[in-house]
Computed example of a mutant assay.
Amino acid sequence: MNLPTGVGTGIGSMPGTDPRETAAIINGELDFPHLAELPARGAGADMIGRMAAILVDLPMDAGVTGYRLAGRGSGLARRARDFLRADLDAIEELWDTAGFIGSGRPVKIQLAGPFTLSASVELPNGHKALRDTGAWRDVVASTAEGAHELVAEVTRRLGAEVIVQLDEPMIGSVIDGAVTPLTRFDTIRAVPVQDVVESLTQIIEYVDRPVVVHSCAAPRWDLVEKLRGVAWSLDVTAPDSAALDGIGGLIDRGDVLIAGVVPSARGGRDVRAETVATGLAGLVDRIGLNRKVLAQNILVSPTCGLAGATPEWAKSALGICAKAGELLGADPDAL
């Protein structure tokens, strides 16, 4: 896995509706930037809606109660493609001006993971796609193909080192069989952890790029233990004993933790990069790991997406992540 070290990064979503302004903020604050999602633009711009522009041979549309898989192309898909094209144009224009194109600079793209997507979109009959094993397996295959095509486009446009992030905030509910069904008489069976691992591995192997799996919900350490060779982007602000064991195992085997520690919305307390870095050093000490892992295996991020933040805090949060990452990479023993 080749992820940059000594850096911070963002999760994906940002406030506002202007892709050029957002790209300027992200690339100005971060050495490991990401392609922004701007859900304030409406349907087709959020994490789930964007997949209407990415899925291959699996059309999506907007129904009365939300997004659904459709039999043919839709206005939603055209709208989502327009949003995605605008976001790609914005970052390409910025990179061209800055002289980054062809430099191999890392950039992260985000896609809704297949299980969160299947738990969120409906079939034409109104049931969640997750209810039908064949349907969610189709979502897995389509996500893999769409991710592969998006990686190719970003590489062509930017000449970048592309990292793929799969957003799976609902993965715990999927594994526990707790996804809300259409009616109380409906049933959506739990998907075994091993099936989740095999499906995500199918995508990881097909895209053939470094992959991050992100969830801002409670981490599923049973999944983290079984799905190896990826980076895990997790909220680690209040680790219990299970989290300490899980983080320790993840790092000890050589995988990367993108530590969600910077608040996604400004709170009442002052947040400083030095405090964030010192806190992560203390976390590593509690686990009993050598502090060198701070520079080699840990990146810094917000706890979740920044779509709900003020523009001012979104910019500040990314800057704090970047500075904290630099501190981890510079001299971990000095923290």
Score class of each variant (00 low, 15 high):
M60E: 01
A45Q: 09
V196C: 15
A259K: 12
D61R: 07
I25A: 14
I251Q: 04
S118Q: 06
E153T: 11
A36D: 05
T17M: 03
A295Y: 15
G73C: 01
G42N: 14
P106V: 09
D176G: 05
D235W: 01
D270M: 08
E37V: 04
G267F: 08
K108D: 00
D252W: 05
A178V: 02
I320L: 15
L223N: 02
L150P: 12
E161T: 12
P263R: 11
L327R: 05
T275W: 00
G113S: 00
L306Y: 08
D333W: 08
D208V: 04
P239M: 07
G28M: 04
A141N: 11
A52Q: 03
D245V: 10
L94R: 13
G10C: 01
L84T: 03
A152K: 12
F115Y: 08
D285T: 07
W95Q: 10
A178I: 00
I247V: 14
S233D: 14
L318Y: 08
T65H: 14
K128G: 10
P59R: 11
V151E: 04
P263D: 07
K323Q: 12
R209Y: 05
I258C: 05
G126W: 12
D222S: 15
G63K: 13
E93I: 07
N290M: 09
R50S: 11
R72F: 14
T275F: 03
G282S: 12
A334Q: 14
R78S: 11
A231M: 00
D46F: 09
G10R: 13
G6P: 02
P15L: 01
I91P: 11
D87H: 05
N27Y: 06
A23R: 09
P239K: 01
T201L: 06
S103W: 06
G260F: 06
T183W: 15
V197I: 07
S199M: 04
E225F: 09
E198T: 15
G16Y: 08
A265N: 10
V271C: 09
L166Y: 05
S199E: 01
W221Q: 08
R131H: 11
I25G: 10
F83K: 14
E122F: 10
V121W: 09
G49I: 13
T201G: 10
G249P: 14
N2H: 04
T97M: 07
A80L: 01
L111V: 02
D255V: 11
V213Y: 09
T17I: 15
R220K: 08
N27W: 11
G305K: 01
Q110I: 09
V191Y: 02
G102A: 06
T65F: 15
D46V: 04
L158W: 10
T310S: 07
T237D: 12
L111M: 09
S301N: 02
R220N: 10
T310D: 10
R50Y: 07
A277L: 04
S120K: 03
E153G: 03
M47C: 03
T278K: 11
R220Y: 04
R272Q: 13
D96P: 00
E198W: 13
G249T: 04
D176P: 08
A277G: 05
A281Q: 02
D195R: 13
A45Y: 13
L227S: 01
G329I: 13
G71F: 02
D270R: 10
V230S: 03
R220T: 08
V293W: 05
R184D: 09
T310P: 02
R253T: 14
A24C: 06
E198K: 15
R105Q: 15
A141D: 11
